[in-house]
């Protein structure tokens, strides 16, 4: 920021510009938001928008190149995979899986992490010590290894992936919420609410919660991106979401043996994945700058 807000202890400050308007002036947020909206629309409308059935195999049209290659055609804009399925249609249906995993995992992780963080930050003392130990333990565990081991044993499927990711990605929620709640609850307005006879429940819901919601949303968008990356890594190793589901990680794993023949099989799914995660991170950055200025995440 090259411009600073007017600060003076006793002149009427600049009227705070609405959050929404400030967000719309944040280039990263706008780009990320539009991108994310695009993915959501594609995912929701995949059945209507996809030019082909994402599961229809055909030996005669295997490994068609994308349209910009020498032998490409508009029928299969992004070509076909080793089973002759339309790549673009699979990519579109894959967005559905990616978003479902991202949203559900981040929600579960957020529920676990925020609960722990809020309790630790509000009650402090022994509660905080126990929860902090829990956070340290979680951080010390190699999450990916544990996730792989659990998936190997527990089997595969979208909801198991969500369960595993949700129960490993909560640490940042807990850390951020703990600090944020600690800061807020030491402020004088919480003191004033206590002095006014408010119960813990009322203080947490009415005084603390509205002031740490921003922190939650910021972490949520980052962790949704992390969930997409982690799910892709699991799929890439062959665990988690199983064929013939059009998961992007799985598509890259399937394309790996054809790296020399048709590198687009890996490149295109990777680009889609990257754009989605980028969108989520940009939205996160935007929310951070608008909702929680001055915080580091």
């Amino acid at each position: 920021m090259t411009e600073t807000q007017v600060t003076a202890t006793d002149s009427i400050g600049v009227r705070p510009v609405g959050l929404w308007r400030r967000a719309l002036r944040h280039p990263g947020f706008v780009v990320g938001g539009v991108l994310l909206l695009f993915f959501v629309l594609v995912a929701l409308g995949a059945d209507l928008l996809a030019p082909h059935d994402p599961y229809a195999q055909s030996l005669v049209r295997r490994l068609r190149p994308p349209v910009w290659s020498a032998n490409g055609s508009w029928t299969f804009i992004l070509g076909t995979d080793p089973f002759g399925r339309d790549y673009l249609s699979r990519l579109m249906h894959g967005a559905r899986i990616a978003l479902a995993v991202a949203f559900a995992s981040a929600l579960l992780a957020g529920a676990i992490g925020a609960t722990l963080g809020v309790l630790a930050g509000y009650f402090r003392g022994r509660v905080d010590q126990v929860i902090s130990l829990l956070i340290s333990t979680r951080l010390a565990l190699p999450a990916l290894l544990v996730a792989l081991a659990v998936l190997q044993v527990a089997g595969s499927g979208l909801w198991i992936v969500v369960l595993v990711l949700g129960s490993t990605l909560w640490d940042r929620f807990a850390v951020v919420m703990r600090t944020a709640v600690m800061q807020v609850s030491s402020l004088d307005y919480v003191m004033a609410a206590r002095a006014a006879g408010a119960s813990h429940g009322r203080i947490m819901t009415r005084e603390v919660a509205p002031n740490v919601l921003g922190h939650f949303l910021v972490v949520f968008s980052y962790e949704a991106g992390q969930a997409v990356l982690a799910a892709a890594a699991l799929s890439f190793l062959g665990l988690g979401i199983q064929a013939p589901q059009p998961s992007w990680g799985l598509m890259m794993a399937e394309g790996r043996s054809w790296l020399l023949v048709n590198p687009w099989l890996i490149a295109n799914a990777g680009v889609a994945l990257m754009l989605l995660v980028l969108a989520m991170n940009l939205v996160g950055d935007g929310l951070r700058d608008v909702l929680t200025p001055g915080e580091r995440f």
Binding site: G225, L229, A232, A233, F236, G249, M252, I266, G270, L273, M274, L275, L276, V277, L278, N281
Partner: peptide, 9 residues
């Protein structure tokens, strides 16, 4: 951008 790229990719 680089934070959005999976390392295996």
């Amino acid at each position: 951008v680089s934070q959005a790229m999976p390392s295996f990719w």
